[in-house]
Write a protein that binds this DNA or RNA. Structure first.
Lengths: 252, 252
DNA sequence: TCACATTTGTCCGTATGTATC
DNA sequence: AGATACATACGGACAAATGTG
């Protein structure tokens, strides 16, 4: 933690070619010169434009692809296309952090509980009518699934996504999104959510929406806690079975 | 949001070669077969082992490097070395999300305030003696810097890092870390922190540590809010000058 | 100080798979 | 079905970096 030479002194030696290429392209994306949906020139064309070899272009594209800035398709009319968001990749990397550091699921559950209650606070302050409507529609959709005896797992997760969005705070939205990614991954491949549990969740979600519409915060918080407790219970049951991520880690 | 075929039906066609290579290596890292500090075989050796071309190996290594799983050096005794954490890369990608979506700094500031107060709650519940000691040492270090008339910017940021760690919740630690990355980036290249402000921050931090030691939570929260308000004020001044990230975005 | 070996970095030529027209 | 435009992949070659004797 001494003097931070790393930021004071920049390397004299030039970066690797593919890094220069990928960073240049990133700049163009950040600046809005390259907009989502736009198609980049082909690899050979890019190589000629940058005066570099195809290998360097390829590696640069790999970097951008992994970060989520572009997607690449084969064939004519294929190529690299600019993406509008990299949230999925961010969530994926958080999941990797989780796995790599063998983070305890318990930590994640507790953080989620605390943060979502926080989010609800923002929601009560900032949510617009459309947000309440979106949440209500989500519940309707979940009910529809349940009526045909299918559990509404995806809808339940989406509810919490929508709730985060209703906070009108994008930072919080992102944070919730990456935490949900861990929960989704942990639940995937598991036995489908029992209909009974799914119905209860739909009830909880509906109660939250109505409390929100009626501006009863305390009630909403209470139901949200119950909802999260139910999700936690289910996850714990699974964790006991397949747990490979027990050991807590405080170290960086 | 209909049936999620994407997860139900996996593509029949095989993945790209470099993806298979990178995923295999990732598995080996997750499983603990490859441990931090360990050096991978050379690119040509890996190409022979996987029965693929060197190009594919290189692209796989690029992917792993960007995700933070490995670092690569040139020269004899160089090569790919397994890393222990990918937190830096995760924070970097969050910063990219911030820039790409032109997230408002205001959002980030408000989220930080709320989350750090939350963190403090965890700290009062879970912090051990060593954590308090680490925080105290950080303040001492900041004071030392100030005595030689250097502002202790890095130490101030580290204080909040240490605080997050003291929560003993790694998920929260990660969340704080990625948010701090935005603040660090925003402050970098700016005029150095004024000594007066830096001294005040050191005072705040010291007060927080003492309140923690004395188990006076309300007092700690109050000082923390002041501390964050000061940081906010400084950042706002900067934001007005160089702001390119104003427009709020709710869209995904 | 200097030569050497190792390993990454880069480029090129070529062949193949794939999607569109 | 065939032509095309593109990414994907391979192998060979040389340059650049870097540690070692």
């Amino acid at each position: 933690m001494a003097t931070d030479y790393e930021t004071l002194i920049k390397p004299v030696k030039s970066k690797r070619t593919f890094e220069e290429v990928s960073e240049k392209l990133k700049e163009l994306i950040f600046s809005g010169t390259l907009v989502p949906g736009q198609r980049l020139p082909s690899e050979v064309a890019l190589a000629q434009l940058f005066h570099v070899g195809r290998q360097s272009v390829r590696e640069a594209l790999r970097v951008l692809e992994l970060s989520g800035f572009i997607t690449v398709k084969s064939g004519v009319k294929g190529g690299a296309v600019i993406e509008g968001t990299i949230l999925t990749k961010l969530a994926g990397l958080f999941l990797d952090t989780f796995k790599l550091n063998r983070m305890s699921l318990q930590d994640c559950i507790e953080a989620r509980k605390a943060i979502e209650v926080l989010v609800l606070d923002f929601v009560f302050k900032n949510a617009a009518k459309e947000d309440v409507e979106a949440l209500r529609n989500n519940v309707v959709e979940a009910r529809r699934m349940l009526q045909s005896n299918r559990s509404a797992f995806q809808e339940h997760v989406d509810f919490h996504r929508l709730l985060a969005r209703a906070s009108k705070n994008y930072t919080l939205t992102v944070v919730v999104e990456i935490i949900l990614a861990v929960f989704s991954d942990f639940s995937s491949g598991y036995r489908p959510l029992a209909l009974k549990e799914s119905r209860q969740m739909a009830d909880f979600h509906e109660a939250i929406v109505e409390a929100l519409a009626a501006k009863k915060k305390a009630a909403a918080v209470e139901v949200l806690r119950k909802d999260l407790a139910l999700a936690e219970k289910r996850l714990r049951a699974r964790a006991r079975l397949t747990d490979k991520t027990r050991r807590p880690r405080t170290k960086a």
